[in-house]
């Protein structure tokens, strides 16, 4: 069988408990917005369609092309899914793909699946769709160019997020992992961009109706443009910072209080990351984490509301 693991799937054991749970929480909150949005806007017919589209992304990852020296590249699909299926459906489809890769093929862990879905299913879709949406009414050449840039950036975003999670878990040295991950994925991303552009070009030539007015591809609100640009800017600004000046990022992390997560191993309870009235117990850390999750959740929920009203 042609199934080949991609280097972004984090197995269990490599992320510590706080990072895993925070990523799971971010993923669950975003997905629940996606579920309620798609439940409202889609008929029962769209669910089988999305299922088969998830199958399509999975199968499309098996179409490989020789690069050099026996290595081959293949599609990851986040940006392509977002552009042809629309943002929320794209997120659900990519989530299903990552879930099956982890559950069935052990390509990526179960506890780490929250992070994997976030990196490969949600960030990629936000960038892929957001940037493409910003040029929706422009010429075909512009749309394809931006789609290519979005595909490249979406791979870089996944790689950067993976690196940061590994660093925060105390599994990797920040500078090394960022340079290695971004270096490898800058090349993988080129393949992703070429394949995505060619696939979109092919669809535009044969079935332009699937990407035109009134199609899923045009349904996302303008809020996506903002989301896509913000995430892209974060990637563009954070990557050189993290690789050239890791001390700078460390300092920011100290200022924001993140660094305790980074330095703690999976069990150590750092006093600053607990609730004072409970003392340094695991319960306290979990509650502190839960409060952080709720705060982030409210932000994402408000963001979701904003995206909804604008659409």
């Amino acid at each position: 069988m042609h199934y080949s693991p991609a280097p972004l799937h984090i197995p269990d054991g490599f992320l510590n408990i706080s990072v895993s749970l925070v990523c799971w929480a971010l993923t669950v909150i975003t997905l629940s917005v996606a579920v309620s949005r798609t439940n409202r806007s889609l008929g029962e017919k769209q669910v089988p369609l999305m299922g088969i589209m998830a199958s399509f992304i999975f199968a499309a990852q098996m179409i490989n092309f020789p690069v050099a020296g026996g290595t081959s590249g293949h599609l990851l699909g986040g940006a392509l899914a977002a552009i042809v299926l629309g943002p929320w459906a794209g997120m659900l489809v990519m989530t299903a793909v990552v879930a099956v890769q982890g559950l069935l093929f052990q390509d990526g862990g179960l506890l780490a699946m929250g992070a994997n879905i976030l990196n490969m299913g949600l960030l990629t879709v936000a960038i892929g769709y957001g940037l493409y949406r910003s040029v929706l009414n422009k010429s075909q050449a512009t749309r394809l160019t931006v789609a290519g840039i979005a595909a490249w950036l979406s791979v870089m975003a996944g790689a950067l997020a993976t690196s940061l999670q590994l660093w925060l878990s105390g599994t990797s040295n920040l500078q090394t992992v960022v340079i290695a991950m971004l270096g490898v994925h800058a090349v993988i991303g080129l393949g992703e961009a070429l394949v995505t552009v060619a696939a979109l070009g092919f669809i535009l030539r044969t079935r332009p109706d699937l990407l035109g007015e009134g199609s899923a591809s045009a349904e996302g609100g303008r809020g996506w443009v903002v989301a896509g640009i913000v995430v892209s800017l974060l990637v563009v600004l954070l990557s050189p910072f993290a690789s050239a000046d890791p001390d700078g990022l460390n300092r920011v992390a100290i200022d924001l209080g993140f660094i305790h997560v980074g330095q703690s191993s999976s069990y150590q309870i750092i006093p600053d990351y607990t609730l004072p009235f409970l003392g340094a117990t695991p319960l306290s850390t979990i509650l502190a984490g839960a409060i952080g999750i709720v705060v982030v959740g409210v932000i994402i929920f408000l963001l979701g509301q904003g995206l909804k009203t604008k659409s």
């Binding site: 089988p48 369609l49 088969i52 589209m53 199958s55 399509f56 199968a59 499309a60 179409i63 490989n64 092309f65 590249g73 293949h74 599609l75 392509l80 042809v84 393949g191 070429l194 394949v195 995505t196 552009v197 060619a198 696939a199 979109l200 070009g201 092919f202 669809i203 044969t206 079935r207 699937l210």
Partner: peptide, 19 residues
């Protein structure tokens, strides 16, 4: 890579119509 992309596009259309 472009050929692989066209194949992915072709696969998309076949999947879409099959759905």
């Amino acid at each position: 890579a472009g050929v692989a992309g066209s194949m992915a596009g072709q696969l998309f259309l076949r999947s879409y119509e099959r759905s």
